[in-house]
Design a binder for these strands. Sequence first.
DNA 1: GATTGAAGGATTGTTGAACGAGAAATAGAG
DNA 2: CTCTATTTCTCGTTCAACAATCCTTCAATC
Lengths: 237, 237
Amino acid sequence: MTDPAAGGLLARFAAARQDLGRSSTAARIADLLREQITNGELRPGERLPEEELCKAAKVSRNTLREAFRLLAHERLLVHEFNRGVFVNKLTADDLVDLFHVRRILECEGVRHAGGAAPGAIAALDAAVADGERAAARDDWRGVGTANIRFHQGLAALCGSPRVDEMMRHLLAELRLVFDVMGSPREFHEPYLARNRELTTILQRGEFAIAERELRMYLDDAERQIAGRYREREQAAG
Amino acid sequence: MTDPAAGGLLARFAAARQDLGRSSTAARIADLLREQITNGELRPGERLPEEELCKAAKVSRNTLREAFRLLAHERLLVHEFNRGVFVNKLTADDLVDLFHVRRILECEGVRHAGGAAPGAIAALDAAVADGERAAARDDWRGVGTANIRFHQGLAALCGSPRVDEMMRHLLAELRLVFDVMGSPREFHEPYLARNRELTTILQRGEFAIAERELRMYLDDAERQIAGRYREREQAAG
DNA sequence: GATTGAAGGATTGTTGAACGAGAAATAGAG
DNA sequence: CTCTATTTCTCGTTCAACAATCCTTCAATC
């Protein structure tokens, strides 16, 4: 095909062509489902009946099943043999593990931020600035989205496509938890300033300090979410 | 269903029952394909034609497609829209990234091995012993399998199900590389002693030393594989 | 020789109908 | 209430069909 040594115009043209509507219906349905899960329309524990969903989506049941398989690997759906497919419902253990792996990946990124690609720290700054702008116009969903981008950017300091993908999955799973957190404002607001502070420390090249700060931040966030989880489970009886 | 507080006999029975033939045909076909990929019968770059494969496996094409979707998330297969499904072929960049992420996960495990679950270091010892036994009877495939178990065990020192899964995928991908490594004996033999040494250091509780040793080990392994890769690509012209 | 365009064949992606198996719900008896 | 049997629902799979796309081959032109 395209000679990899040819760089420039031809390589860019080929790459751009690759993106033009070249996705399967199954992938598109998976995107749709992912969107509904992460924006809260499909809730944790909810069952996804094939017949209903394929009619609503106007696709065949086989195609829907392929989409389900695509989403199962992101842990957004849980496939239970002969019982159907459910939106994943995180347990307290899941939460502990999620934060554990976040610590591994995000702290690794921060620890080695000195060797990160040129624009990686600038991207953090941009995410924080976007969050601040969204807060200024009371767009708390936008703040949440910028926050997610910020954390994706911390792991991206590792400069590893596989780490990036793992982090995407972790953050998608974490999105399932926002359900229990109540007001987006109340949840996200305190972290805006902390994101700004972390970014400033990183820009100063104080990576060990940044790592320490990030650990405390993640500990606090975990404690907060776990606390709400416990309340929720007690309220459910 | 089973009361989670009921522990003991009933919980163990329910868990065992969960494993009894409760997998779909799609999952079973995926297992079969995974086995063929990891033992070298299906080679990197090879295309998997649906019509042929579904006839050979005696399943319907829809079921085979579901199996493909299941394997794509492990990066063992690459799904190219409208062109078919291929056994993944690792690039030199993939190799660098694989070792990068291995360093993150395995070194994290070793660094914090002091807090690992009680049997975790014993499991490393068992894997090394199995490798030594396999070598003694000239079973070099068995040595390779024990080596993989050893590395899975290093990451398992983290005590995280998500890390375990990530590591499983990394090691499965790495299996794709063994194709280029020639003689299993030549490849695996030097690492037997190093696995034994690493385990001994861990058993002595010298975790920082173990981490240093593991980094050198992974650097050496990476250099070796990358060298063979370059040779192979030059030989291919 | 190289390049382009057209045609044909192969295969992928999707659809819909059908059927069997397993789980869940319901009904009836003690 | 518990237990058992039956019914209903839906999941998992199969099959056949068709449209769309890709790949290969061939012919024409420079």
